[in-house]
Design a protein around this nucleic acid. Structure first.
Lengths: 97, 97
DNA sequence: TAAAGCAGTTTATAAAATAAACTTGATATC
DNA sequence: GATATCAAGTTTATTTTATAAACTGCTTTA
């Protein structure tokens, strides 16, 4: 009846991160924090989880002398996101936008 | 950028309960348990939360001599569900089904 | 060179999901 | 007609999760 919802996506912040990264080549920590409104601590933890799951890739670089954490969605991340959306449809009937 | 996701809906089981109740006049405890695959304990807790939020109404009746807990979505529940779906759309682009 | 800021991490706390154990009453069994 | 069994839930306890607070290391500014 209802498909399983991947718990990694079923979290407001992580869903926001993934949604953001899906629409963009890559994004840095500060940008994601601003867009999602998350605290740095929370974002750090959630990014780590997504990274460990293989859904995003982290690259630690510098912008001049300032550290910069770049995030990029992986193909597995894209696939898992699509599956999550598909599972959601078993709960919700979306009308066309 | 991203709309807030009502945490009462953003739970797999509660979302399932609400989705189910949305499609049906009312449903009893056992039926919901079967359809969602939830354990009785978990279902009891989640139904209670939805009820306290005013999203569903509980009526304790009997089916013959056997107790029967009937659940029914309220107008506020319907409205909140629609808002949840709307908020989801800020995270996810749904194509027509 | 002290103070203040930025980028991010680690740790501690609060909240949530879930399962296990229990209660109550009904039915079936000996 | 006691006793075992089962169904429908509830309560309690445990685990997981989300989140914020506190911290680290480096940089810039006063």
């Amino acid at each position: 009846m209802f498909k399983e919802l991947n718990p990694l996506f079923h979290s407001e912040l992580r869903l926001g991160i993934m949604s953001l990264l899906l629409s963009v080549e890559d994004a840095d920590f500060v940008y994601i924090r601003e867009q999602t409104g998350a605290t740095a601590g929370n974002l750090s933890v959630q990014i780590d989880k997504l990274s460990k799951a293989g859904y995003i890739e982290i690259e630690k670089t510098y912008k001049g002398k300032v550290p910069c954490t770049l995030c990029k969605i992986t193909p597995e991340g894209v696939k898992a996101f699509e599956q999550y959306v598909d599972a959601l449809k078993s709960y919700i009937h979306f009308k066309d936008e």
